[in-house]
Nucleic acid binder design. Sequence first.
RNA 1: GUGGGUAUAGCUUAGUUGGUUAAAGCGCCAGUUUGUGGCACUGGAGACCGUCGGUUCGAAUCCGACUAUCCACCCCA
Length: 448
Amino acid sequence: MALITNAIKGTLDLLPKESCKTQYIEAAVREIAENYGFLEMRTPVFEHTELFQRSVGETTDVVQKEMYTFEDKGGRSITLRPEGTAGAARAFLEHGLFNDALPQKIYYLTSCYRYEKPQAGRLREFHQFGVESFGAGTPAADAEIISLAHAVFRYLGVQNLTLEINSIGCPECRKKFQEALKAYFESYREQLCDTCKSRLERNPMRILDCKSPVCSEIAAGAPKILDFLCDDCRAHFDAVQKYLQAMDIAFTVNPTIVRGLDYYTRTVFEFVSSEIGAQGTVCGGGRYDGLLEELGGKPMPACGFGMGIERLLLLMEAQGVPFPEPKKCDVYLVSMGEEAGLKAAALAEQLREEGLSAQFDTVGRGLKAQMKYADKLGAAYTVVLGDAELESRRVNLKNMRDGTQTELSLDDFVGAFQSIVLREALAALDTSDLDEADISTILGGVQN
RNA sequence: GUGGGUAUAGCUUAGUUGGUUAAAGCGCCAGUUUGUGGCACUGGAGACCGUCGGUUCGAAUCCGACUAUCCACCCCA
């Protein structure tokens, strides 16, 4: 059969067997973000194109060649969001959230779209977990979001990530730095690679992380941003590092980190892995004190980060990090005959009302096939329902792990099964390695 | 946008110097057990060998173009 079409280049289908992993990551980041006091914000997938031009920056690659931009039927220029900060900032201003107590700490978990050539860790539709701390200008705020990202990796058991931080200063000190940089590279113009020659005009800071051997050698002797920071920016950057040290978060200062989005000021950082191919940045972010004003709001500091869900998943799989088992079927109701089929459906209904996972045959399989299917589902128990059971009002509950059967009353099946499941759950609780302190904590919790 | 690799069943792959019904494992369905899953054995379904064109008596195999996909550059999450 010829398929009508295939998935669009750079997009991924998340199949049932895989989706539980992503759900696990999503649940983890939500819980951690909320523990840090961040609340979810959801904004539309598309925005006015101008929003991204103004926030991300006209000259950036993202705006110049990677946006999904189209005209809607009303003649508006619309763009699928290439990142999450712009929409969050827009909504923050539009709804006057700056009138509430600051900082406003929000997070999002959304899809983003960039027209890029796909490769390992890079998709045209990808998903980002991001946080924004609006109205927080102190180094403590920078450190708090870095700590949040760090906590996510720790919680999920991800290892071997390096945290690299840098300061790209405020517009004033960056301007001085860029002039010095331009003057420096100008004297080496002829030796630079072609892309760096054009960078020299557009964004000389980019030359700093060029991979070409010649350029990187020249770049090694280039002026350093950290030498150009004004007193305020210098003090801010020093304080961020002090906070990170106080929170026991390891980092390295990497003066070549330059974020590709125009709105960044002062602190920038990346969590980088070498285990998932060339696109190793799993999380990137920083401070963007000028963004809200740029979008028409009052001047207000802010900082945030974006974390790539697919890259994080790639990394977890590369490291063999364990994922929780997906919820399995508690009981499969095998039925033979029309009457028994009705009874199975009715029982499943009641079991599900009690919060149990029950399934029954919906494709007309025979008994053996139903047993086999139950086994594939990983059903903990099966019950066979046939004329004999309907007649005697007795059923055999089969434990699929050890094969043992228990006879139960059909009329009281739901209650009896529920108590079996409960008793099993209690028995599964391993209390052997709890000490006195643990027990009193638990008891305290129960009393409350 | 620029390079390089790859394309055979749902998945992972084999396929000899071009040669006649394209092979295996896993998965799926069924049987060996007429009311009980896993293990084993047996059988079955499932592939226009990415597409189009060329060379040839003959192409999954050689050549070309296109498409898709993967990896890298660029850039970023």
